[in-house]
Design a binder for these strands. Sequence first.
DNA 1: CTGAAAGCGCTTACAG
DNA 2: CTGAAAGCGCTTACAG
Lengths: 348, 348
Amino acid sequence: MSARDVRTREEAMMPNLAEVAQRAKVSTATASLVLSGKDVGRVSRATAKRVLRAATEIGYVRNALAAGMRSGRTSCLGVVAEGVLSTPYAVDMIKAVLTAAAEHGWSVILNDTGDEGQRAHEAVQEMLSRQVDHVIQAAMYHRRVDVPSDLPDVVVLNGFADRPGVPCVVPDETRAAFEATEHLIALGHTRIAHITDTSGVVAVGLRLRGYRDALEAHAIAYDERRVIRGGDAPEQADASARRLLALRPRPTAVFCFNDGMAAGVYRQAYRAGLRIPEDLSVVGFDDLTLISTNLDPGLTTMRLPHYEMADWLTRAVINDGPGGLHSGITRMPCRMVHRGSTAPPLTA
Amino acid sequence: MSARDVRTREEAMMPNLAEVAQRAKVSTATASLVLSGKDVGRVSRATAKRVLRAATEIGYVRNALAAGMRSGRTSCLGVVAEGVLSTPYAVDMIKAVLTAAAEHGWSVILNDTGDEGQRAHEAVQEMLSRQVDHVIQAAMYHRRVDVPSDLPDVVVLNGFADRPGVPCVVPDETRAAFEATEHLIALGHTRIAHITDTSGVVAVGLRLRGYRDALEAHAIAYDERRVIRGGDAPEQADASARRLLALRPRPTAVFCFNDGMAAGVYRQAYRAGLRIPEDLSVVGFDDLTLISTNLDPGLTTMRLPHYEMADWLTRAVINDGPGGLHSGITRMPCRMVHRGSTAPPLTA
DNA sequence: CTGAAAGCGCTTACAG
DNA sequence: CTGAAAGCGCTTACAG
């Protein structure tokens, strides 16, 4: 074959290592050593300088494909996201992965398999084919994740694996719900309702647990009638909110499973002529700023640690590899963002 | 060197083409032909079957690095995003790129250089090093994009290049603003205000143009006092909205530069005791559903064609290459989403 | 401190 | 219809 058979680097004016070596009058071995920073104590400073200058002069860019094939390491991270980009909730995770990876000089191959998670197998094959060093499997919300068995170096972000031995990181839902509820208790509330979801997502149980634990810790009786279950969409959030406001005696505070449900409470409270926070304190969950900052007053809510989880996991994987990680579930704390939707009860 | 020097496919139990060929009792040339689908009329059906069976039996996954190096094509798309993941506005573009690429069997290397766009050069070097076939440069909002000169096969998504010869795609802002305004005119409004941005982003001028054109097309006098300029944050949106409501005679409708500003109008209208849409019709822009569906009533707004732009561009690049594209600006239409925040004026 | 040479796993003209 | 062999651009023991 000739140089014309394929779209060569030469055609695209991409010089290769041999040309750098030739120009610097050294072997490709020496040039490689210098250009990959492995030259200390092995190549004289003068030679190294010559190589670097030559590389700069002809605009050398190393072919990562060739390097990866020879060395067996690609400095490439595969991210198999399951619908992460379909939600505004979790995009921060991708952002964190990209940022942390870039800081380490790593690249990221991203594949979002969509809400169904159907294309997951294909995505994994693709990652293997591209020889990524590690795979991060990211879930759009805290849930159980099916981890392909043919994937050795895998970790799970925002979910837990269906098999043991896989490092996972999730938000500490129960603790967050405990703190949110305790915040309301500290303000003097005792009739605290909880609006939650009808779906079976794990966070529902974990946050309910935190809510109950907080009540119990402060000797407030748990009243099942104050736990309202409804859907996620705006109309369903409205329905839940109406049921909340119909409770007698009316709760003076509500802890909502997410910000969308809190938005429903705002809409119905205004329609009923109630003031927030004077007549009703509201705490949300997620901190979708598009919702929380556009409500009036701004919504006090628990921020999910999407960025922190992804940042931590990415750095850990790059620095230690999945093997260096605790092979189990790591829980990360959520932080409460105070904006003005809570106050002491008027009756206090 | 020996097989133990590097982390080989053997260690990871990754069979290579030679093993497939050996098992199928053919040469690697024949195996390669079959496994890359180039065997029609070149390899007998029986031989092809043997190869495919052998590959399946030993769980062969082709090494895309080696294939890419030899063939000069990687079926890999580089996406240099400039803060796209930092905004809820434009994530749909990434989603569309990933989906379209996956459908063609392409992988995507994603790099978000953050809001500043500082790391753009590094990102480009990275892409070149990884030998991506094409690069898509994506902007977080419609704006001028500095396209690195050392990047031959590049196209711009949601922006326009600073140099000629680069295919670009952007939303048709002027037409969208024209249609939004015309919708209000068709309902019978004549006192139509426009709340816009103080920043110098290009969309400000383009949408103002569409607003003015629509008024002119329907012989409604343009009144500069009805164009209110303010910032983007909730408090600034509130300030703009207050100025709107202080106008005398009060406009019966308002076309907002974005949904966040429309949310400010809702807040202030409610505080002033005005009903939407009876007393004031509101049209937004962007269709951030977290805002538009959580307002009461739901916000009628122009949806930006982020998904469509990215989908179209990705398919075009993969199928034709950047060279096959119109080397200039392509404008894509926005679609109006009707939700109930507009109605005929009461005085009509 | 430096270089010659092997080899990563594939694809591709080319010869038969 | 099939195979032998070259070569993509690197990195890495190894020899000197």
